[in-house]
C-alpha cells in the first residue's frame, strides 16, 4: 500500500522534479509576430528584407482597412449582427490580402493541419454569425467572433512563418 502524502510532501517532491517544458518550439511563432509587430522604439535592422517588405505591406493594408472601415459605414449598423457582418467582410479582405502578399512573395497556401484548423475557424465564424442572427444584440457573441477572427489571422501567420523557417533550413 502506498503511503499517504501531505501537501507539504507533494510540494517538496514538486520542487525536486524538473519543470515541465513545452512540447514544441515556440520561438518561431514568437519571432514571426515580433517581425510583424515591431516595438515602438525598435529598429527592424535584424529583420530580413523579404519579411520586412511583407510586414510593411501588411501594416499598410491594416492602416488602409482601418481608415476605410469607419468612414465607409455611412449607414451605422443598427444591431450587433450588422456590425458582425461588417467585421466578417473586413476579415475576409484581410485574409485575402495577407494570402495574396505571401503568395506573391513565393509562399504556398497553407496546407495539412494548418489548412484544417483554418477551415475549422471559418466554420466557427459561420456558426457564431448564425447565432448572432438569432440573437442580434448579443455582445458576448460579437466578442467571440472577434476572438475567432484574431485566431484566424494568428494561425495564418504561423502557417507562413513555418514555411519561412523551412525555407531558411
Amino acid at each position: 500500500m502506498t503511503q499517504r502524502k501531505t501537501l507539504e510532501q507533494l510540494l517538496q517532491q514538486h520542487q525536486q522534479q524538473a519543470a515541465p517544458a513545452p512540447n514544441k518550439d515556440l520561438w518561431q511563432g514568437i519571432e514571426h509576430a515580433l517581425v510583424r509587430q515591431p516595438q515602438g522604439k525598435a529598429n527592424a535592422s535584424s529583420v530580413t528584407k523579404p519579411w520586412f517588405a511583407i510586414a510593411a505591406s501588411i501594416l499598410m493594408v491594416a492602416v488602409l482597412v482601418s481608415q476605410w472601415w469607419p468612414k465607409n459605414t455611412t449607414q451605422q449598423p443598427q444591431t450587433i449582427y450588422e456590425l458582425a457582418q461588417q467585421l466578417n467582410q473586413t476579415q475576409d479582405q484581410q485574409v485575402e490580402l495577407i494570402k495574396a502578399r505571401f503568395e506573391a512573395a513565393g509562399y504556398k497556401a497553407p496546407s495539412g493541419n494548418f489548412a484544417e484548423s483554418l477551415a475549422n475557424l471559418q466554420q466557427a465564424r459561420k456558426q457564431v454569425t448564425e447565432s448572432l442572427m438569432k440573437s442580434p444584440n448579443d455582445r458576448s457573441l460579437l466578442e467571440m467572433l472577434r476572438w475567432v477572427n484574431q485566431q484566424e489571422l494568428k494561425l495564418l501567420d504561423q502557417a507562413y512563418a513555418k514555411q519561412s523557417r523551412l525555407q531558411q533550413l
Binding site: 519543470a19 517544458a21 513545452p22 520561438w27 515580433l34 517581425v35 522604439k41 529598429n43 535592422s45 535584424s46
Partner: peptide
C-alpha cells in the same frame, strides 16, 4: 532587446521560457 534586437530577445526567451511555461 529594448533597442529592437530580436536575437538578444531570443536569448532572454531561452533563459526564461522554462519558468514562464511552468
Amino acid at each position: 532587446a529594448i533597442a529592437g534586437d530580436v536575437n538578444a530577445f531570443q536569448r532572454l526567451y531561452q533563459t526564461y521560457v522554462g519558468k514562464v511555461y511552468g
